[in-house]
Design a protein around this nucleic acid. Structure first.
Lengths: 130, 130
DNA sequence: TTCAATGGTTCCATCAACATGAACTAAACA
DNA sequence: TGTTTAGTTCATGTTGATGGAACCATTGAA
């Protein structure tokens, strides 16, 4: 049985500012990074992503984050655990990640809204089924 | 004769972290912001954009920067002068813009490569004509 | 006034990249 | 050998970047 394709992580040299900014410019991905950052420990994909997000969409977002150099992914049995590469990134681009996370934490960034929005949709669907 | 359509600038409240990051995630736009920042004075579109960039492309990028809240544009006769709204943005999202500009200034960001790339193309075209 | 030059904008087509639903796969375990 | 779990891959509609062509407003000269 063929081994599953391994994950590719860019070296720090290959990480570009543009890719990092691009990866963080999406509310879902920003929310994932925030959750990984607040958890401070490896998290599998489902637990770090907003609830009720299609798996394919999750997989895509993790790929973007991984290829931008923001996270490191490792297989553990059936699941994939992800950790932030914040320390490395902060060594190359000092201050950027902390400033962004701080903005989100203050509520001026709207990553929190993703959870709220999805919760709202969930509620609306629940009502629709009534 | 009809007045030219006025520019629309978002209020600081309407500026989102995601839009700001998205706008800065493009090498051309990042290069424009750097040039405006280093100049520290209003600059018209052509002088802030990388050389040899088609006018329609410039126009598009200025629109994205304007709608993200990063620049303010005003008509002065036949030209449009642009200024950074860094002070405002920095009040809402402290530290982000300075950290990004610092990364570019150190050469770890690749916005400078835009000019280099275009200069290379220009040289190559020059050679081709020989 | 009329006319050309300047500096941008708008429209359009093209091509690449992203988001997501449907179908598929590897690993773990009964 | 099922069956469940957790992600991946494929196919497709949507969006964004790019750049050529045509257009518009302002300025300055004849």
């Amino acid at each position: 049985m063929a081994m599953q394709r391994p994950f590719l992580h860019p070296t720090l040299d290959d990480v570009t500012l543009e890719s990092v900014l691009y990866a963080l410019a999406d509310p879902v991905r920003l929310s994932i990074v925030c959750k990984l950052s607040s958890g401070n420990c490896p998290m599998n994909c489902s637990s770090a992503a907003p609830i009720r997000l299609p798996k394919s969409t999750q997989s895509h977002h993790y790929q973007v984050l991984r290829e931008a150099g923001l996270i490191r992914s490792e297989r553990r049995g059936t699941e994939v655990v992800n950790t932030l590469r914040c320390t490395e990134i902060d060594a190359k681009f000092p201050g950027i990640i902390p400033a962004i996370l701080a903005a989100v934490a203050r509520g001026t960034g709207c990553a929190a809204a993703v959870e709220t929005k999805i919760a709202t949709i969930t509620i609306a669907e629940g009502h629709a089924k009534d």
